[in-house]
Design a protein around this nucleic acid. Sequence first.
DNA 1: CATGAATGAGGCTTCATTCAT
DNA 2: GATGAATGAAGCCTCATTCAT
Lengths: 189, 189, 189, 189
Amino acid sequence: MCMRDKILRTSLTLFDQKGYRETSIQDIVDSLGVTKGTFYYYYSSKEELLKAICLAYIENLVQHQEEIIYHPTKTNTEKLHDIIYMLIDRIERERNEARIFFREIRNIKEEHIEEIKQMRDRFRLNYQKILEDGMKNGEFKENVHPNLITLGMLGITNWGYYWYNPEGEVSVEELAKLYLDVILNGIKR
Amino acid sequence: MCMRDKILRTSLTLFDQKGYRETSIQDIVDSLGVTKGTFYYYYSSKEELLKAICLAYIENLVQHQEEIIYHPTKTNTEKLHDIIYMLIDRIERERNEARIFFREIRNIKEEHIEEIKQMRDRFRLNYQKILEDGMKNGEFKENVHPNLITLGMLGITNWGYYWYNPEGEVSVEELAKLYLDVILNGIKR
Amino acid sequence: MCMRDKILRTSLTLFDQKGYRETSIQDIVDSLGVTKGTFYYYYSSKEELLKAICLAYIENLVQHQEEIIYHPTKTNTEKLHDIIYMLIDRIERERNEARIFFREIRNIKEEHIEEIKQMRDRFRLNYQKILEDGMKNGEFKENVHPNLITLGMLGITNWGYYWYNPEGEVSVEELAKLYLDVILNGIKR
Amino acid sequence: MCMRDKILRTSLTLFDQKGYRETSIQDIVDSLGVTKGTFYYYYSSKEELLKAICLAYIENLVQHQEEIIYHPTKTNTEKLHDIIYMLIDRIERERNEARIFFREIRNIKEEHIEEIKQMRDRFRLNYQKILEDGMKNGEFKENVHPNLITLGMLGITNWGYYWYNPEGEVSVEELAKLYLDVILNGIKR
DNA sequence: CATGAATGAGGCTTCATTCAT
DNA sequence: GATGAATGAAGCCTCATTCAT
């Protein structure tokens, strides 16, 4: 693996564990056994590194999402399941990235964040479109606020990044099923 | 209002807008037109101030929650509605506190956080108890994972702190109703 | 003397001897036996200190100049002598400031230099006005380029900051007389 | 043109515009589309480059000057004119070099500057000799301080490097004539 | 000849905190 | 109660230089 990637990988752990602000460049390079100069050879600033992390995360996420939503034959209910599954499943592999994304994105200055925001919106609107399509074709109940439902559903899975432990008792499969069931059928008897 | 409270109020805005780490003691005292010495007369450290904010937030939340759950006659469904309503309603008044609580709590050192964690857990278990009670008495479907459902439901409302704008088109009342409806009945037609 | 002034005085010597860029904040505070924090308590940046030096120099210079030019009865020839004398005389007391002014002014960013540039221009135009007045009233030969003559004359004295040693053989008085004589009468036999 | 010269040419512009200290090796090699290794193949250090610039400037200047002063038939007045003309004329072609020479020479360490200082003195003494010869043969007034007059006259032209714009209204020819006239005849009516 | 990765020292600046008054 | 001068550790970043290839 090249140094630029090594720096990014190491930062993933450090930024998630200690926080972006609380992690110094010195911490990063010490973890790698190199010197500060090396860091700045590959990244022009700490912020650029953060941006690289966030952008990689969200681009990858959207890519996976779009593979799901552009599936030719699946129903919207199935697509919804697949996305929820994907999101939970990725907690295992991308927990660091995701948490950094949610928590540290505010440290990226306005002038550098446009690209990331666009991707984030695209992800949300893709999600919302599944709901809207499902409402139109009768899979889901009609509702005047698909956007609010989308945000609520995102809340369910995003929150998982803060507490879900894939090594615990509940498997990804189970959790995804559980949440899909609640979302589809509710909790009322 | 006394100086200790003034400091806390001002910090609420600053910590939320700029972040805890990004806000200096100087920023805080400048906003109040006092000097640093004053700050340290009322708080022994910046961290103590953060702790005071987080603790006040979570204690207040639990107090409101317990007023709801100890209501003598309401059904669990009604209590659930009331809590969801309360949580969304408080976005309006306690947005700063809430976001600071979620985002900055990690800046409190292990040795000072016990009290806060206990409150947070108490809030979650109170919530969970409503679900369990409702399952027992037949209001809600039986489910082996009331804790996971609780966490999912918390995700819905907690996420709202990041996007919900109480001055926007959708009222607190509407949003609480919408989310309660989804949670109770699901989105499936 | 207050710390802010002490810092400025010390910097005068260091900036002139070693250069602005070559002098570190550490050098300055070490010379004073204080710490870097102290420096930043009094100056918001190294550049602000440089600006303070340059501004004090040029304001003081203009003030002295205007005392000369607004004299009610002196001829323009006399005023010219007085200014040349003043400029050379000040090499003794203000050599550091003057050299810093000439050499380091370029380190002040555009957005902070306006005030200084205005003063510098005022000094030059005041100087030029003596020539113009003297041309009008017959003291000096008419010439279409009083501005170029002004700049040439300024060159003579300003250059002195780089080589003139007031402790040397030639006194301020002598040098001023010599230059005034050359300027008035030329070197031609 | 060879790489060593290309590096020197590029540095001329950069050092003058941004300053020696403010120009990094990276700036230089970026301007040329080469890499740092290349730079260090041709120059052992940044300082060596600066020295090369300064030495080339002053050697060239002395050479031109000596062509003038060793002219077999011209009067000292004519030689003085020629030198002033040359100095102003060179502002057009050698402005960068000249300003770097004046401003940045201090960045050359003591142990490397001897050669340059000798040249600079030779230039000054050559200049002074014209005055002295002219005094002896009656072209110029006798004066006990030909060295001070020399330095004053150098001030006039050297200062021009900071303000004279050859593209402006006044031509090299005009300016040289003007200054020679002031120097020879003075400004007094 | 030329590359480019890596170094390491040093620079400017920030800031929580202390303390004498 | 409150001030404000001073501290000192730490942070981000720059850069001339080296060296294996």
